[in-house]
Design a binder for these strands. Structure first.
Length: 372
DNA sequence: GACTCGTGGTG
DNA sequence: TCACCAAGAGT
């Protein structure tokens, strides 16, 4: 303990330690923490592999959506070396439906790197973690704190919201990120000398649990909040107006056509380019997806399929909303003769095994619309 | 710093 | 309904 803090402690002997925000936060967490599949039991060491896997899956994705995927992954690949020995195709198939598919590619690349370059052991520092594929500033800090008890504060959307309310940060996001990062770090409990744990991971997860269950985007339950007493936005009665941010523009509608061609009990599919939207995932052939495109224009774009007779347009359209644009697809179906060969770059797959394909949800919608 | 990148839930 | 949001990263 430094002379300065010793002096402070002596001059303010009546200030109860338990009233500090970090302490209140941890006390609340010990009572109300969520039980999640990737969390170690209280007092037990957490598995860096499970922490890493969950953090990647949880990027921009809800706890509820991640649950089944996490269980599937750890059942099939119980450690990072097992995942590193898998194939990218199998990883993409297991990831299908969870979204943001570049995460799956980076997940696999990271597992290979840890297996081959780090002997199957994750780096235990923020810097070392940050150098791995798919691990950015947030995830590096989260793993360092949760898995290795490094005294650092990861800042995600939850923590941005909690902190911006607690201190009534008027600056808009994303400009406010550095300020929020600094303020968030003040919520870490002090490191004690010797064998005392910093509990940085618990502090971070406490803020996330708080953001998920009490300090919610809309209608926060301030009366249940352990930090209610010194929340500036709460005192102002305006917690919902934080964090400040500029309104985002919605994307322009794009249209396209999709062609569902069957050959008996098989379906014609192809793989999308490795980079870009739905990179590397399976799709049925179709037109480009363009703003202002007419359905009749979209239908022209299938030169490889021109030979097929009896095209039938399904009534209605399939709609899907991506992060930055909504999409409308018209669906055409055709039946190919028994021994029709797949055009270059395409292949026939049994309809019965479509569930095992790396099919993004928008394609599942298209196929269901066509065949259902 | 501004875009790109999925999907499902919410009020 | 629809805008917003969710344990963000890569370019």
């Amino acid at each position: 303990m430094s002379p300065k803090s010793a002096l402070k402690a002596k001059s303010e002997p009546t200030l109860p330690v338990a009233s500090s925000r970090p302490t209140l936060l941890l006390a609340w967490y010990d009572r109300h923490r969520r039980r999640l599949p990737w969390r170690a039991a209280p007092g037990e060491a957490s598995d860096p592999y499970r922490v890493w896997l969950s953090e990647i899956m949880l990027q921009q994705t809800t706890v509820k959506a991640v649950g089944p995927y996490f269980e599937k992954f750890v059942a099939r690949w119980p450690d990072v070396s097992a995942l590193g020995r898998a194939s990218l195709d199998n990883v993409l198939r297991m990831w299908a439906g969870l979204g943001y598919y570049s995460r799956a590619r980076n997940l696999y690349a990271c597992a290979v790197a840890v297996t081959r370059e780090h002997g199957g052991i994750f780096p235990d520092t923020e810097e070392g973690l940050r150098a791995l594929p798919g691990i950015g500033p947030y995830t590096a800090a989260a793993i360092a704190a949760i898995a290795f008890d490094r005294r650092t504060m990861p800042v995600d959307g939850n923590i941005e919201r909690v902190v911006s309310r607690l201190f009534a940060v008027e600056e808009e996001l994303p400009q406010a990120k550095p300020v929020i990062q600094q303020l968030a770090a003040t919520l870490l409990a002090d490191s004690r000398a010797g064998d005392e744990k910093s509990r940085a991971g618990d502090s971070a997860q406490a803020l996330m649990d708080l953001g998920a269950s009490i300090c919610t985007p809309k209608k926060p339950a301030c009366s249940l909040c352990p930090l209610n007493e010194d929340c500036v936005a709460g005192a102002q009665g305006t917690p919902e107006t934080f964090p400040r941010k500029a309104p985002k523009k919605s994307g322009t509608l794009r249209r396209g056509a999709a062609f569902v061609v069957t050959r008996g009990d098989e379906l014609l599919v192809r793989s999308r380019p490795e980079r870009g939207l739905l990179g590397g995932m399976t799709e049925v052939p179709g037109s480009d997806w363009l703003a202002g495109q007419e359905d009749s224009t979209a239908k022209q774009q299938a030169p490889e399929l021109k030979g097929l007779p009896h095209w039938q347009r399904k009534v209605g359209v399939v709609t899907h909303v991506f992060t930055h644009f909504p999409l409308e697809l018209v669906v055409y179906t055709a039946k190919a003769a028994a021994r029709t060969r797949a055009p270059a770059g395409m292949r026939w797959v049994p309809i019965a095994t479509l569930a095992d394909e790396a099919l993004p949800n928008v394609m599942r919608k298209v196929i269901a619309h066509a065949l259902g």
